[in-house]
């Protein structure tokens, strides 16, 4: 039993980890098939896990309804939504377009219920960006002042009118052979200091990810099994 819970997952993890890492260096069709085969296995496992997910949702919300917790009516709505969508899917035969070419009720529900709901959440982002920017762009220290200056350059630089004022009215296009038009300045900020910082982060992330993967493949890190050492 202990073998099935501890050693077997470690052995599977080691073998699959090494095979997957080496697979990248073997260009044969068999190697590519192995990769597809492993991906298929993950998809199969994910399908079973989705049942687990639905079970979790049902358990949480049925408990709320049973205990008549505050807001239990919303939990009823969860089940109503699940049953309604399932029923519409069955009625539509799982198709997006009917044989006559018209959208099925399933498509209608998706286009006129799901998409507007998603769009509503996504559109909130614009307001949240504004409020976050308002709090961030305060020149409290040298770093925050630099951030403010860079943000202002990029923000203003992307407005065509600023380019008109900068280049056409003020005549600022070139200085000692260096292009200093507004798009050039914005381009420099985005492609030089910005990319330099992002690459620094990317190096660290790559090494961290490899180190974490190695820890798991070699069984040094076992917490994901549900236990420490």
């Amino acid at each position: 039993m202990l073998f099935a819970k501890r050693q077997l997952p470690l052995i599977i993890c080691f073998v699959v980890g090494v095979v997957t890492a080496l697979q990248d260096f073997v260009p044969t069709n068999f190697s590519q098939k192995v990769s597809i085969w492993l991906s298929d296995w993950y998809i199969i496992a994910a399908m079973f896990a989705s049942l687990l997910g639905f079970g979790s949702v049902a358990l949480v919300h049925s408990g709320r309804i049973r205990r008549q917790m505050k807001g239990w009516g919303y939990s009823v709505l969860v089940f109503v939504g699940v049953v309604a969508m399932f029923a519409v899917g069955v009625i539509s035969g799982g198709k997006e377009v009917s044989d006559s070419g018209s959208p099925t009720p399933l498509t209608w529900m998706y286009v006129y219920a799901m998409v507007p709901l998603q769009a509503t959440m996504f559109s909130l982002l614009g307001f949240y960006v504004a409020s976050a920017a308002f709090r961030s762009f305060r020149a409290k220290s040298l770093e925050s002042t630099l951030l403010l200056a860079a943000a202002l350059i990029v923000l203003i630089g992307n407005v065509p009118f600023s380019n008109y004022l900068w280049s056409a009215k003020m005549g600022l296009t070139e200085w000692q052979g260096i292009k200093i038009g507004m798009p050039d300045i914005v381009g420099w900020v985005m492609s030089t200091p910005n990319v330099a910082a992002r690459r620094g982060v990317a190096f660290g992330v790559a090494l961290g990810a490899i180190a974490t993967a190695l820890k798991i493949i070699f069984g040094i890190e076992r917490a994901y099994l549900g236990g420490g050492d």
Partner: peptide, 17 residues
């Protein structure tokens, strides 16, 4: 709260342990 059922299963075991 989870958005992936496999991650949820793993995290349940990790939290229990």
């Amino acid at each position: 709260p989870h958005t992936d059922a496999i991650v949820m299963a793993v995290c349940q075991e990790i939290t229990r342990e």
